[in-house]
Design a protein around this nucleic acid. Structure first.
Lengths: 191, 191
DNA sequence: CATATTTCACCGACCGGTCGGTAAGTCCAC
DNA sequence: GTGGACTTACCGACCGGTCGGTGAAATATG
């Protein structure tokens, strides 16, 4: 007995939404890819939008869990590294869900968008807390926390636009590179 | 005599594509926003895709020009700052074109996508050249050039996802913040 | 244990509406 | 009177979503 149909639908939908985009993927496309009728999909989900919502929700729940792990690490440097690695790992291991969540946000109606945004904000707040600690303890420089957090997430999230599995680097390795770049800076200490 | 109709179409299309996405914007929507008939649009453009292509092309041409200016600056630090500021300024001043170009890439057919990607690669190569110079002259640390360039562009490009005109900061100021963050790093030099 | 009943997962056919795109003609400036 | 800018009227294909119905498995009933 394979995976429950409902989960199969989510998996395949995430794959297609990632590949072609939410709007460009028809319910017919999805049904055919699953070997189901269109009506069968509507037995499991009330609308196409609900499928997108569910995928986004699951992705953010997973991310938040990763974020909490990083928050438990006492050393700020170590915690930031863990956060970034965790984010990258989650991205690589759940690429369709992750990408669909990030790309699909603006395709959701305001009502369904709001709870997703709330989750995302909670996640971002985790990172800010982590950075704030580091700055208060003197490990990090005193910087605009919100903008610094945005910088970290920009680096990681933009990976959805260029990172392809099977390349020379794992997503986690890219995250480590970004971490060291951010931490020590680009400038040479010699001069 | 106002703006040529063709240009008005591009402006309005870029606005709508940015706001709702390319796929979610119908030719009908565009025609109504312009006060024209749908058929009139097809007098100026052979297809909806061609409108997207033209917008993307113009955006990248403008960006490339900015990039060349930065490349002319001899000091690597100064050049990188100029590159990042120029990118951010172009984004802010041409937001609809810029955003449409970045978001719409995957909506183009492979044939129309290829020349756009080629332009984008030329732009990225400009940044890489600039970074390579800095590393060779010892101003910057020896790092993976391709990945470092990606980091810079990730920071700047992700702004399309959160930056809204009218906020407390100008895009150029954000770029300066990112520049200093990247250059000196997050870590406190004291400890 | 056999049988009646309900539930579940699913189907083919179809709904009104919208999609990108087109054909043929009108208007108007030069 | 010719050519560009634009119109109305229309096309077939496809959109998200719904309909009544079907066979099989689970559940309740004697």
């Amino acid at each position: 007995m394979g995976m429950a149909t409902r989960d199969r639908i989510l998996e395949e939908a995430a794959r297609l939404f990632t590949e072609k985009g939410y709007e460009a993927t028809s319910v017919q496309d999805l049904a055919e890819a699953l070997g189901l009728s269109k009506a069968a999909l509507y037995h499991h989900f009330p609308s196409k939008e609900e499928v997108l919502y569910e995928i986004s929700h699951q992705a953010l729940e997973g991310l938040l869990e990763e974020g909490k792990k990083a928050l438990a690490v006492p050393d700020p440097r170590e915690a930031l590294l863990r956060f970034m690695e965790g984010h990258a790992r989650f991205f690589e291991e759940n690429r369709p869900f992750f990408v669909t969540m990030l790309q699909g946000l603006q395709s959701l109606s305001p009502e369904k968008q709001a709870p997703i945004i709330a989750l995302r904000d909670r996640y971002e707040e985790t990172l800010r807390t982590l950075l704030r600690r580091g700055m208060e303890s003197g490990v990090f420089r005193q910087l605009d926390v919100a903008l610094t957090a945005r910088a970290v997430l920009s680096l990681l999230n933009w990976m959805i636009r260029w990172f392809r599995p099977g390349g020379p680097l794992r997503a986690e390795e890219v995250a480590r590179f970004y971490f060291h770049l951010l931490l020590r800076g680009l400038e040479n200490g010699d001069s």
